[in-house]
Simulated assay, not measured.
Amino acid sequence: MKGLIQRVTQATVKVKGETIGHIEHGTLLLLGVEKTDTQQHADKLLQKVLNYRIFPDDSGKMNLNLQQAAGGLLVVSQFTLVADTQKGLRPGFSVAADPALGERLYDYFVQQAQQSHATVATGRFGADMQISLINDGPVTFMLQS
């Protein structure tokens, strides 16, 4: 399971022009699920996302995690994160989870996030989504479980 996290001052996800998820200060997580992923991978990645120290403390150092910074979490599924881009000019998706497994683990991840964190917004699995964000820093990290 892969997660691209971005520290944002705001982020919004829309489907067909309708806003379905929005956060102010916090973390945008683009979540990719591989076919070998399990709930244990989701649990491990969630703990990383919630506890990864990417927010500045009073000295301006990245010492605070999402919960300490009282930020929101916007979780958006993105299967292209698990693409194989090593060869050629077209991505391969042989390691990507099939849609049923991807959706099941995405839903599980979101459910666990909502139980662990106060502010969680989401995209819609499998939908054509438009995401707007203001990356704060910019600060972006790729996490894996």
Rank of each mutant, 00 (worst) to 15 (best):
L143S: 07
Q115L: 12
R124W: 04
Q47K: 12
T12Y: 05
N65W: 05
Q40T: 14
P138G: 04
R53G: 09
G102F: 02
V75K: 04
V49D: 03
H117D: 10
A42F: 01
T36Y: 13
H41M: 03
V8A: 02
F55T: 02
L66F: 03
L101G: 14
T19G: 12
Y106G: 14
R124V: 07
A83T: 09
D84L: 08
L74Y: 02
F79M: 08
L30T: 11
S132N: 15
Q130H: 14
Y106S: 14
R53Q: 10
G123N: 03
Q130N: 14
I20F: 03
K61R: 10
K44V: 13
H117I: 09
G137V: 00
D107Q: 14
A113E: 08
T38E: 00
A127E: 10
L105Q: 11
N51Q: 07
V82Y: 10
I131W: 05
D84I: 09
Y106D: 13
T85P: 12
V82S: 11
F79H: 10
S94D: 14
M129E: 12
T38L: 07
M142E: 14
L73F: 04
Y108S: 14
Q78L: 10
R104F: 11
K2C: 12
L81R: 01
R90Q: 12
I5M: 06
T27W: 00
L46D: 00
V110H: 03
Q10F: 13
Q6I: 01
E24Q: 12
G102Q: 04
V139E: 04
R90H: 09
S132I: 15
D128N: 08
L81C: 08
E34S: 15
L143G: 07
M1Y: 06
G3M: 02
A118I: 07
H117N: 11
F141P: 00
R53E: 01
D58N: 12
L28C: 08
D37N: 10
H25V: 12
K87C: 13
T119K: 07
A100T: 13
A100N: 11
K35S: 14
G32R: 02
R90C: 12
F109T: 14
A11L: 00
K2R: 15
A121P: 14
Q39Y: 00
Q111H: 13
Q39K: 12
P91D: 08
L74K: 05
L4D: 11
A97L: 06
L31R: 07
V75P: 12
V95A: 13
D58K: 09
E24N: 13
T122C: 04
Q114D: 13
G137Y: 01
G126A: 08
Y52R: 09
L30D: 09
H22Q: 00
Q112F: 02
Q40D: 15
M129D: 13
T119Q: 13
S145Y: 06
I134Y: 09
V33A: 08
M142W: 13
M142T: 15
Q78Y: 05
G3L: 05
R90A: 13
Q112E: 15
L73Q: 04
Q68K: 06
M142G: 12
A97K: 03
L66R: 05
T9R: 01
D84F: 03
E103Y: 09
Q112P: 15
L66M: 08
M1P: 14
D128M: 07
K48M: 03
H41P: 08
G60I: 01
A127F: 01
A113K: 03
T122H: 01
L81E: 08
M1W: 06
L50E: 09
